[in-house]
Every structure is written in structure tokens, then in C-alpha cells.
Amino acid sequence: MAAKPSESLKTLSIIHLALVGTILAFGIFKFVSNGTFIANANPNDIFIYVIPVVAAFGYFMSQFMFKKQLLAINKTDTLTLKLAKYQAASIVKYAFIEGPAFLAIIAYGFNGNALFLVIAIFLVVYLFMQKPNQKKFMEDVPLTIEDKKEFKNTNR
């Protein structure tokens, strides 16, 4: 764990940016290499049913697991431990969004169906909006007055 709380959040931001950038790069690569953009839905394509379900599952599980892991943070934990638990919860949340986005891009690569690319784009936008920052951390984690003072003092 980093010495300063701001460094922990910066590390988490770098991880977040790397995940978003990787998905974007992979999606752009698949779009350029595939070159097709089919708007018809083939009812015999199993991905038509699987991808939306997996995407919805990933979205809801990301929220559920994040909130569940935040509930495991005790108000009596040290600030360093709270930051570590928040970082772990955030990475799990990102993974639940990233997995379905990659799957949607892979499915798009197979047949060029625009639906899969659109689903991946929505997941990437949602993942991008989950960017960690100090305000979100202070709202999501149960901090004591001492934690808030320590957080502000160590960030100077």
C-alpha cells in the first residue's frame, strides 16, 4: 500500500485507465480488422441471447459485489486498511464490467453484429464513469473524523 492515501487512489486510477484503454484498443482493433457492421439479428446466432445476458449480469454483479465488499469495511479499520479494501472492491467491480465487454467485442469479431459492439461501448462508457477519485472514496467508505483529518493531512 502506498504511503499516502492520494497515492493509493492514484494507483487505482492507473489500473482503471489501463483497463479502459485495453478494452478500447481491443475494440478499435476488432472494428478495423473486421470491417463489417451488420444490423440484422440472426435468431440462430447463440451470441444474440448470451451477450446481453452476460452484459446485464456483469453490470449488476459489479454493483452488488462492490457494495458487498464496502460493507466489509469497518469504521474501526485503519485508513490504510480501508483504502486497501476499497481498492480491492473497485478492482472486482472493474473485472465484472471488463469481462462482458471483452466477450461482446469477441462476439462482434465473429460475425460483425453491431449489437455486440454497441453493448461493449455501453460497458466501456460505464466502466469509464467508475473512475476512482477522492470524493467517491469519502462518500463510499465509512470514515471517522480522525480518518478524514488523516486523509487531508497526508495529502498535503
Rank of each mutant, 00 (worst) to 15 (best):
A104M: 10
Y59P: 05
K82G: 06
K68I: 05
L9A: 00
Q63D: 15
F31S: 12
K136D: 14
F102H: 13
F137P: 00
A55C: 12
A107V: 03
F47L: 04
K30T: 14
D147W: 09
I105L: 11
A120D: 00
T78V: 08
N44Q: 13
I38P: 04
M65S: 12
Y126K: 11
K131I: 06
E146K: 03
Q134D: 04
A95K: 01
A84P: 01
K68A: 09
F60Y: 14
G58W: 14
I38G: 08
A25K: 09
F60S: 08
F96M: 08
Q63V: 11
Y126A: 09
V50I: 15
G35A: 10
L71F: 12
L9S: 06
A18T: 13
L19S: 02
P52R: 14
K10D: 07
P100G: 10
Q134A: 00
L12K: 02
Y108F: 12
Q69G: 02
G109E: 06
L24Y: 07
D77R: 07
P142A: 00
L103D: 01
V53H: 08
F137A: 03
F29P: 03
S90I: 07
Y108V: 05
G21V: 02
A25E: 05
F116W: 03
A41M: 08
N74P: 11
V53P: 07
P100V: 12
I105Q: 07
D147S: 05
K4Y: 09
I119A: 08
A107W: 06
M129N: 03
N42M: 06
N74W: 08
I145R: 05
F151L: 06
F29Y: 15
I28L: 12
I15S: 01
A95G: 08
I46Y: 15
A55E: 08
N111R: 10
P5D: 04
P132K: 03
A89D: 05
L83C: 05
A114N: 11
S90T: 10
T80L: 07
T78M: 03
V54M: 15
L143A: 00
N44V: 12
G21L: 05
F128Y: 03
K82N: 11
Y49S: 12
N153F: 04
E7Q: 10
G21C: 07
